[in-house]
Design a protein around this nucleic acid. Sequence first.
DNA 1: ATCAAAGTGTACTGATCGGTAAGTATTTGC
DNA 2: GCAAATACTTACCGATCAGTACACTTTGAT
Lengths: 187, 187
Amino acid sequence: MRPNKRDELVRKALQVFYRDGFHATGMDKLVVETGVSKTSMYKHFRTKEELILAVLRLRDESFRNWILRRVEETADTPAGQIVASFDALKEWFEEDGFRGCMFIKAGAEYQEADHPIHVQAAEHKRLMFEHIARLARKAGARDPEKLANQIVLLQEGAIVSAVLLKNGDPAEDAREAAQLLLETALA
Amino acid sequence: MRPNKRDELVRKALQVFYRDGFHATGMDKLVVETGVSKTSMYKHFRTKEELILAVLRLRDESFRNWILRRVEETADTPAGQIVASFDALKEWFEEDGFRGCMFIKAGAEYQEADHPIHVQAAEHKRLMFEHIARLARKAGARDPEKLANQIVLLQEGAIVSAVLLKNGDPAEDAREAAQLLLETALA
DNA sequence: ATCAAAGTGTACTGATCGGTAAGTATTTGC
DNA sequence: GCAAATACTTACCGATCAGTACACTTTGAT
């Protein structure tokens, strides 16, 4: 089992799961799309669930890396970086093939709170929260945890609105609301 | 086809779809859970998709009725009613068997923007937005559409956070943020 | 009482689900 | 160059998927 082969499978599976959903994507479809044989597929991943968990790990890592880097390129103060996260979201929404947040979708398809896939999706959201909370503390907010929670609300809301309520510019609206929250929390 | 029989099937199917998801719920499971025969099932609904659309119509109607009534019972000024919508959300989150927003989940499982199920989920979100926008106009907000969009962001964010980020009290955090937005938009 | 609508159970279709068996080819490290 | 690991093809498993055929029973309005 060459490690890069496995990674390649995870990358390709990520695309298909993201595009078509988890239950709607069968292992046979993945076998066709990756060009790998079914036997090899099951050599690398013992079950579909194990594959999905690997996909979510990759997505978590690459998404958080991307947004962290993008935010640091845009602003250098903690408060500025919180605001910049909404500019990054806007970029993401405008990407070709944008289909919403993979973790919201994973949580929606695997709803039991103790299901491994649900747990892993929740863990991603917790890490995203932690990032904002760290910035809020560095910015000197009055109640950094609450501010971070509110910022996250705006982020999640913007994602959902970008998918379902194609009305207006959710990232921009969220950005302005976030700015107001920041000003109030720092005053 | 007695109409009440059909409604009963929709009500029961709603529970199962809400609990287990759309793709994960087969027609056979619904037949068992409703006690109806498969033949009758397909007399009432020509396809699974038609059943899901009927379920979403019922959910849209009853959910919007419920939140509208709850909001009117809690406050009588337009601004107060906007804030009260977050108290209603909090009640909802604390219900037994709360599993998030059925329309977010429908949009997540049927992702193509022109899929009938996706379209109907989006329509529900539009109607929810319209309700808030109406209140924002009556309250005399400076830019009622933008305010309504921001309120909706907080609502959607609270729902997602209630499902995935069990951290804190999303409805309360959203409520406070909404209050701040309102004060600023009305000043 | 009758007749049609609406209900029933059972058995079936072909396709697809996740996952496996058996045997063969191709890389890979030493 | 050789052996072991890895990947391959093909065919298969039992279960479930959405949906249908057919023959039978209950129900309700006239």
